[in-house]
Nucleic acid binder design. Structure first.
Lengths: 225, 225
DNA sequence: TTGAAAAACGGAGTACCCCTCCGTATATCC
DNA sequence: GGATATACGGAGGGGTACTCCGTTTTTCAA
């Protein structure tokens, strides 16, 4: 469902496949230990290939990230499906968010990957962004439909909040902190019975949320500096 | 209140003072337009001083950031004081958070500065971290004392959530998005009358907040990669 | 006023890193 | 067993971070 375009019938070369795999493996390892902005030359070095080879397979840092963490992203997508079946709407949402935190905690570099997925607009990261947006969107819609959650927050908003909170990973107590924050956040999402309290800053009743929910897939030009 | 230490009685040299100021001014301008990771050599160039001079005055990028944005940080601190007098607890908190977003929106580079303040453990950033922590802590405590806000969230938590959310500045609609998210968050902070709902994840009643409120100033070694 | 010494200056130098380009090597397929 | 499409690798151009040290400037005491 992806390779048409007049099918030039040449098998991909064996060494190309092999090297691609080597680079992926090296990248996984290097990113895990060295963090998000490790040197790509280090990756090539570790993979035992030339820097040119690395760049041919993955033209940008994002592309490499994407490839390395696509498996993880897929898992998160599947988890969302599963939770949709197994848990009550709000609970499912909460658990999915929490699972994200665990992912980030486990795989160092995952945080940066998520950040790139959410921030970058590189052609390649669209897939992951879609996948995650849909995952959280599904959970969100269900909870909204059940009347348990306010309707003016988009999946993108939520995703970015999540990624933002995980941004501070590598702080001493970050994980607990983020879990706490997520709970607060989910509580805030719940439709409030009579929060009329003292109205606080209800000066922005729903200035957005004009049904349009932002434009998904806004595309636009490069972001490269 | 700061210069004791056996006072070796040598006035600081005039050119040193002048150059420090030049570098600061240049940095402000360069960071504003060029973003967080602009070249320090560009800063030196614009200041009309050698790169060595820049490094002597500000040994690290963080140090320079700190110095550039200290004024802003102070302003935020004062704003908190003011709001404490002028507004109701929860409202004050909300407004302070919103002001932060505006700051980031106005000064490009402020976001990165905040991130460094929150993340970095460099000696210099301690001041700012303290200042902001106390600012938000004051607002928070007041709201907690008034019984309007849950008590298991520390100022540090809040600060980091804020910075995290601003992390995605430079996205198309980020500002509105973050303001929305902040509202959700503040709503979540409010003491809920009878959220007994399905209990969801109330499994961390106040595991922290044991009065100690984490340890500020954790120091530890370099963070340089 | 003067001149020695402390303090600051500035930029060349080292060590990385990103990314491109292209001559060389190798797998495919007829 | 070639011909040729593909892939390889690394030199090279252009940057940046940060250090080191010979030179210049300022201070201050005599």
């Amino acid at each position: 469902m992806a390779d048409q375009s007049a099918a030039p019938p040449r098998k991909p070369r064996a060494d190309a496949i092999r090297n691609r795999e080597l680079v992926l493996k090296a990248a996984k390892s290097v990113f895990s230990t060295g963090g998000a902005d490790a040197s790509l030359e280090a990756v090539a070095r570790r993979a035992g290939v030339g820097i040119g080879t690395l760049y041919r397979h993955f033209p940008t840092r994002e592309a490499l990230f994407e490839a390395v963490y696509r498996r993880e992203v897929d898992q998160l997508g599947e988890l969302a499906e599963q939770l949709k079946k197994e848990a009550a709407p709000v609970d499912a949402l909460r658990r999915w968010l929490r699972s994200n935190v665990e992912f980030v905690a486990t795989k160092k570099g995952m945080s940066a990957a998520l950040a790139i997925v959410v921030q970058g607009s590189s052609e390649l990261s669209v897939y992951s962004f879609d996948r995650l947006t849909k995952a959280v969107g599904g959970l969100l819609d269900r909870a909204v439909a059940a009347g348990e959650i306010r309707s003016d927050i988009s999946p993108e908003d939520l995703l970015r909040a999540l990624v933002g909170m995980c941004y501070m990973h590598d702080q001493p107590g970050w994980q607990k902190s983020v879990l706490r924050l997520l709970d607060v956040f989910v509580d805030g999402l719940r439709v409030q019975a009579g929060t009329g309290g003292q109205a606080t800053a209800r000066s922005h009743p729903r200035d957005i949320a004009t049904g349009a929910r932002e434009s998904p897939r806004h595309k636009s030009g490069k972001v490269r500096k």
